[in-house]
């Protein structure tokens, strides 16, 4: 089955990429943009989903600085 993993900076952790995007948007004329956070989308095909959390904790995300969520998409 196909799984989609979303990894993002933990709340409260400085996100320089998000800040850079946030300040770039008004420069293009897009006003009214609030906080921006940049994360990572990982799609993978797996045979069993009982290992998903372990995969996320050990490799796909770094729990010290990131949080993750995953869902089966097909």
């Amino acid at each position: 089955m196909k799984v989609r993993v979303l990894v993002r900076p933990k709340s409260g952790i400085l996100d320089p990429q998000g800040e850079a995007v946030k300040s770039a948007l008004p420069a293009l004329g897009f006003e009214g943009v609030g906080n921006v956070h940049v994360g990572r989308l990982i799609e993978l095909e797996v045979e069993r989903i009982d290992e998903m959390d372990a995969m996320c904790r050990r490799l796909l995300a770094n729990p010290t600085i990131e949080e993750y969520e995953w869902e089966v998409i097909s």
């Binding site: 952790i13 400085l14 320089p16 990429q17 800040e19 850079a20 770094n62 010290t64 600085i65």
Partner: peptide, 17 residues
Amino acid sequence: LTEAHLLPGALLRNIDM
């Protein structure tokens, strides 16, 4: 070494990108 948990913490992107 931080990723391997031999040292605490993590190295984030430089603040000014």
